[in-house]
């Protein structure tokens, strides 16, 4: 899979190095003054600024309805797949504004996993994993087989399905289906993987498996995860973004935010005083 996009990190502009915790990490994606909304509604994102560090897990937390999904869906422009949805501002990736790129090319570099597992119902396990390749014209069996195995291993699903790769993807358990969806997203070799509450439909054991694999795969790529579960954010992420009513309230190292939040509203949310 080749993309025309240069995925090298863009040089760190002086003004964004303010956060000294992050000085050493390169920036994979930089969101500036992002405003977004839906047809006929009030703006949902009211000028969000944040940076996503390369090869880290960044968690986006905040009360339901604050715009977490809207934000993460802007990052690979799935947001605009909703009729009438608008997005304005800058999402710099590899030095270019993602909002001005071809969304199809962008999405190959920025993959996504959704809240509910959504394997393709007509496809087998292997076909599901390979779908991003086959649908884009890769038909070499050896390449596909290799990509399927590699992706399933990265998604910690290989051992469970290696003997039934031709069985329907929808026949797996919910947790397995979600890992299948992660494998499918990884097969395209994205530089960034977005996950929107990927465990909200799963039991604690399935959730634990996904958390483990996220910690594994961040060695190779950048992970952004929306979660309503603060323990999950604490377990998997290095950085946390706290959102409230369409605004980014606080952003920083997870361990710092959970121990000594800067903003009063963050503190209130984390200590469970609202949300």
């Amino acid at each position: 899979m080749t993309t025309t996009m240069d995925m090298r990190p863009m040089p760190l502009p002086a003004e964004t190095t303010a956060s000294k915790d992050a000085a050493e990490a390169k920036i994979a994606m930089s969101v500036r003054n992002l405003k977004a909304g839906y047809a006929g509604g009030a703006p949902v994102l009211k000028g969000v600024n944040l940076e996503i560090r390369e090869k880290t897990v960044t968690a986006i937390i905040g009360p339901s309805g604050c715009g977490k999904s809207t934000l993460i869906r802007c990052l690979n422009r799935m947001h605009e797949a909703i009729p009438g949805a608008t997005a304005d501002g800058e999402i710099l990736i590899g030095g270019r504004n993602a909002l001005e790129l071809d969304p199809v090319v962008l999405r190959r570099a920025v993959g996504m996993v959704f809240q509910r597992p959504n394997p393709f119902p007509t496809m087998s396990i292997a076909q599901n994993v390979a779908a991003g390749l086959t649908l884009n014209g890769v038909h070499d069996r050896a390449i596909l087989a290799e990509a399927v195995e590699k992706s399933l291993r990265r998604a910690a699903l290989w051992d469970e399905v290696k003997d039934k790769l031709d069985a329907p993807g929808v026949g797996l358990s919910g947790g397995q289906q979600q890992r299948l969806c992660i494998a499918r997203a990884l097969a395209v070799e994205p530089a960034i993987l977005l996950l929107d509450e990927p465990c909200s439909a799963l039991d604690p054991i399935a959730t634990g498996r996904i958390e483990e694999l996220l910690i594994q795969i961040k060695e190779q790529l950048t992970v952004v995860i929306v979660t309503h579960n603060m323990q999950q954010a604490a377990r998997v992420s290095e950085y946390t973004v706290f959102m409230l009513m369409g605004e980014m309230v606080e952003y920083g190292l997870t361990r710092k935010m959970f121990t000594q939040p800067v903003d009063k509203r963050t503190e209130d949310y984390i200590t469970g005083r609202f949300g």
């Binding site: 690979n76 797949a81 190959r108 993959g111 395209v188």
Partner: peptide
């Protein structure tokens, strides 16, 4: 549809 679009198809 979303799953397929998100794969860059």
């Amino acid at each position: 549809r979303e799953a397929a679009l998100a794969l860059g198809v």
